[in-house]
């Protein structure tokens, strides 16, 4: 790509933001391996994790060396949304996190794929994967929300608990020419439709706050994230300079 130095920095920071989202959520989904409620979900969750890891590798490689960026940056240098670093919780929490994020990612990549930014080819490929992720999350939201009373209670609790992390997704990311307010409107419409179909109530708490508005994108994370990185980076950091 031919860019001016300024654009290059903006592109690098955008690649990091999107790459970190994919990397961190992939890691969280990887924690499910061997714990899923049904074997088909072992396959599905690992499948989604792998897609996201693939996206992360392409994006981080645009910004530098993928392994240096993943394993040698400290918490304050990560640019991912706070939403994706949230612990898995129960299956409903994982599904709520997937629903919020994959809907966002689907809308975002659809717009990027139609544009002319250097991210267009990548988004064109990712949008096919993300359409599947978003369908998977929607289907499970329906099954948990409109299944048993327990499923309904747990799913409602999960969508409520993660609601406060959703405003951050629509803070503009430098280097991405995206109509953020329109993206947010489309996201809210789609989420509202799915939650209603699932007989769930759309949460009414704040979606942004002094701490959560864009915080992850600025390197301010939640407490569980440091522990996640400690586990993820430990082996790589224990053998400086080694190749694997």
């Amino acid at each position: 790509m031919t860019t001016t130095p300024d654009q290059d920095t903006a592109l690098t920071s955008a690649a990091l933001a999107l790459g970190d989202d994919a990397l961190v959520l992939s890691h969280r989904l990887g924690e499910w391996a061997g714990h899923a409620p049904v074997l088909e979900e072992e396959v599905a969750l690992a499948n989604i994790a792998l897609d996201l890891l693939g996206q992360a590798r392409v994006l981080l490689s645009l910004a530098g060396d993928e392994d240096e960026l993943a394993f040698l940056r400290e918490e304050r240098a990560f640019r991912n949304l706070q939403l994706v670093e949230q612990p898995n919780g129960d299956f409903a929490h994982t599904i709520a996190r997937q629903l919020y994020f994959s809907t966002y990612q689907h809308l975002l990549h659809t717009e990027l794929a139609a544009g002319e930014s250097p991210f267009a080819p990548l988004a064109g490929k990712a949008v096919k994967e993300v359409a599947y992720h978003s369908d998977h999350a929607e289907q499970w939201t329906l099954r948990l929300g409109d299944g048993t009373t327990t499923g309904h209670t747990r799913m409602q609790r999960a969508v409520d608990a993660l609601w406060r992390y959703t405003g951050e997704m629509f803070q503009p990311v430098e280097g991405l020419g995206v109509d953020w307010p329109a993206l947010e409107t489309a996201w809210l419409e789609r989420i509202t439709r799915v939650l209603h179909r699932a007989t769930l109530t759309v949460p009414d708490g704040p979606r942004t706050g002094a701490w959560t508005a864009g915080a992850g994108r600025q390197g301010l994370h939640t407490e569980p994230f440091g522990r996640m990185l400690a586990e993820m980076q430990h082996l790589h950091r224990s053998h400086p300079g080694a190749t694997w």
Binding site: G34, L39, V43, A46, L53, A56, F71, L235, H236
Partner: peptide
């Protein structure tokens, strides 16, 4: 799966995740 979250490179992590996913598929 015990090592998925600690795999030392992204390439190895992807290979390991794919393998564990295959095993679930073989079980099915």
């Amino acid at each position: 799966a015990n090592w998925i979250t600690r795999a030392p490179s992204l390439r190895r992590k992807a290979i390991l995740m794919a393998k564990v996913q295959d095993e679930a598929g073989h079980g099915l």
